[in-house]
């Protein structure tokens, strides 16, 4: 645990992600406007918001892809302002854009990322077989990733993102464009990962998926306007579904969706 030199240090023990007044400006435009939140170990944290609300920018700051304009944050025990390379060793990331190498085979993609994250060489092959067995992908081991259906690709990308047993996995709209059955299937995998103690930070547009999360935050125009368990949020806004909660909040948006 590295101190970031504030009196908060003691409080944030046990928190896997901790952010205070995170802010990102692009010129005059404030994409993320002073957001603060904490996430516990093993939690499934839903990060909701309309298009252009600032979700991806916030996530990019937490994963070390983007430098905050101001504010502090700690991810997996490391400062996002100064220790992004250490953070990267302890997280997994699955981007909105499907990012496995299409011209590599299934096992080659797994091997590449396992190797990059320092999984011992001897373990890679048996763990690959084990993973493919659990996914029911044994037959596809030697298939080029480009010829897999989208739902399979996403399951594979998620499995690759957590292959090195990271403390946190960041999922940026992981289920975009797949059918409901595949989405349910995918969420089962998320639950399994959370059961193993991996914290899941997930952005989504699907409000039914928001119900699956332990806690959700809803971003509107760069700010976090609501943050609680789905049940408490529904009670708070007197709504029966998360969809209603979302519409209630998103109506306040002054920003044009992109």
């Amino acid at each position: 645990m590295t101190s970031i030199g504030t009196d908060k240090t003691t409080q944030q023990i046990g928190k896997v992600i901790w952010a205070e007044n995170l802010c990102k400006k692009f010129g005059a435009f404030t994409a993320v406007d002073h957001i603060s939140f904490e996430i516990e170990k093993g939690e499934i944290f839903g990060f909701l918001g309309a298009n252009g609300a600032g979700k991806t920018t916030a996530m990019r700051m937490l994963t070390g892809l983007s430098k905050p304009t101001s504010g502090k944050g700690v991810v997996a025990g490391f400062d996002i302002n100064t220790q992004s390379e250490q953070i990267k060793k302890n997280i997994g990331y699955m981007s909105q854009k499907f990012a496995l190498y299409e011209d590599l085979k299934v096992w080659e993609n797994i091997r590449l990322y396992a190797g990059i994250y320092g999984v011992p060489k001897k373990e890679i092959a048996p763990r690959t077989d084990d993973l493919l067995h659990r996914l029911g992908f044994e037959k596809e081991k030697d298939t080029l990733v480009k010829s897999l259906p989208l739902g399979w690709k996403q399951k594979l990308a998620f499995s690759v993102a957590i292959f090195h047993e990271p403390k946190i996995v960041f999922l940026d709209e992981p289920t975009g464009g797949v059918d409901p059955a595949a989405r349910r299937n995918f969420w089962e995998m998320i639950y399994q990962a959370a059961d193993r103690g991996i914290t899941v930070f997930v952005t989504t547009h699907y409000m039914d998926e928001a119900e699956y999360c332990n806690r959700v935050s809803i971003m509107v125009d760069g700010r976090i306007d609501a943050l609680d368990t789905p049940k408490n949020l529904k009670d708070q806004f007197n709504a029966s579904t998360m969809d209603e909660v979302f519409h209630h909040l998103a109506r306040k948006s002054t920003r044009n969706a992109d």
Binding site: L65, K88, K89, Y93, S95, K97, F98, A99, L100, Y117
Partner: peptide, 14 residues
């Protein structure tokens, strides 16, 4: 262009 470099950028690859 394909976005794979971003995936690489969140890994410990220097």
């Amino acid at each position: 262009e394909s976005g794979t470099i971003e995936q690489m950028n969140v890994t410990p690859v220097g």
